[in-house]
Design a protein around this nucleic acid. Structure first.
Lengths: 225, 225
DNA sequence: CCAAAAGTGTTCCGTCTACACCCATGG
DNA sequence: CCATGGGTGTAGACGGAACACTTTTGG
């Protein structure tokens, strides 16, 4: 087992956050231009170093909080990236994390403060270092998970219309879905509850608002969509 | 973006290998008793530290090679484990890797040399640190991937009988499979080729030996089982 | 009154599942 | 000759995919 401790080189470890949002039928990513060297001015994920007294998950949540002011966000590890020369400055191993947030919860003023923007995932620029790989892997994971885990609700407000929900699926899967089939499936899912509220913003007729009942899901957590 | 370099604490990074093998209808794991402190004597995965000049993948392959003498082995990252106190000695972040090897390729003498053993995955002891979590995650990934990637062949010799292949699936999925349905599906997969060889070891009648045609798979890599 | 989005069922087809018996051979 | 593992087909259930029209209402 492991040769131990003494004389093994330590390295910098960072976390990078792949922050997905959804707006206007599009899946978006929150990225910014680096304001430091190396790579100043290139598009990049938002990240930070892992400190001695915090776990990887804590570090990811901290970084996300710094950027968004949000806590208790859906977040999953995407993987560790550790090519020797991945960072042009110094050896840095980075753990990528994927977060799903509701764009409406995001304080627009912070876009200015942190110099970040929402960019459509199908219009992503070249990103710093291996960040494009991180994003690619995150999207792959997202696609795989969306049909076995109730992820989509994290990208929407607490109440949403079925059309919005469908748009989330379409954006993540990158394909259109038949409306009737989609709604038929939704009806079989007990913990997607119809509320008495009606959304009149996007349609003249008005669309029923639904809600994800987390408790119902937790007691019978067989997800399938 | 990332506050940079100066004055960020570096940490030890290790890789731990979850080495699966298959024998006697059982999925097995190669584990050993730690021969160093802390945790001397407790069961543990085989691991090692990541050095300055090697990538994570390189480190994982090196550690695997040290233990097994095998190269070009199927290997996937399972994830990064980074609880602050996960290692009782010092702060160590560890990246878990999962490898699939054919037990027959493994030199039995190395079991002695490295003090490791094959243990059935359903009879695993308590492992050092968070290694049980790593194994659990690896098995979950394995189960998910086995039906969308041709993993199973890595656990078998180059030629194998359909019964052996079925046993691999049963061991990984943890459930029995109907023989006729299984063979029916296999027949639809072009790159699982019947050879002219016959295995007379496990049955008196003799069983046809099959082979995974990697090239055929690579040209038409739509896997589904 | 019309444009725009909401809402709603049926049929067909392919896939998965359940299920039982004969074959070949070494000992 | 018999115990052991190898090998084979069919029918019914189920789930996914294709597909078009009516409703409501704000402007």
């Amino acid at each position: 087992m492991t040769t131990y401790y003494n004389e093994h080189s330590k390295v910098l470890v960072s976390v990078d956050c792949i922050i997905f949002g959804f707006e206007n039928k599009k899946l978006k990513l929150l990225i910014g231009k680096r304001n430091m060297d190396p790579g100043r001015g290139t598009w990049s994920l938002y990240g930070g170093f892992v400190e001695q007294n915090e776990s990887l998950n804590d570090a990811a949540n901290r970084v996300l909080y710094q950027l968004t002011g949000l806590k208790d966000i859906y977040m999953k590890q995407v993987g560790a990236f550790g090519a020797v020369d991945r960072d042009p400055g110094e050896r840095v191993i980075s753990i990528a994390y994927c977060a799903l947030i509701n764009v409406k919860d995001y304080d627009k003023a912070l876009l200015e403060t942190h110099q970040v923007e929402w960019v459509n995932i199908d219009e992503l620029p070249v990103l710093y270092s291996d960040h494009n790989d991180m994003v690619k892997k995150a999207i792959t994971l997202l696609r795989r998970r969306i049909s076995s885990e109730p992820l989509s609700f994290n990208l929407l407000p607490e109440m949403f219309t079925l059309t919005q929900l469908q748009h989330v699926y379409e954006a993540i899967l990158g394909e259109t879905i038949d409306k009737r089939n989609f709604r038929k499936r939704i009806k079989t899912v007990e913990y997607i509850e119809k509320t008495d509220f009606v959304d009149k913003v996007t349609s003249k007729r008005g669309a029923a608002l639904y809600r994800f009942n987390k408790n119902a899901y937790l007691t019978d957590s067989t997800f399938k969509l």
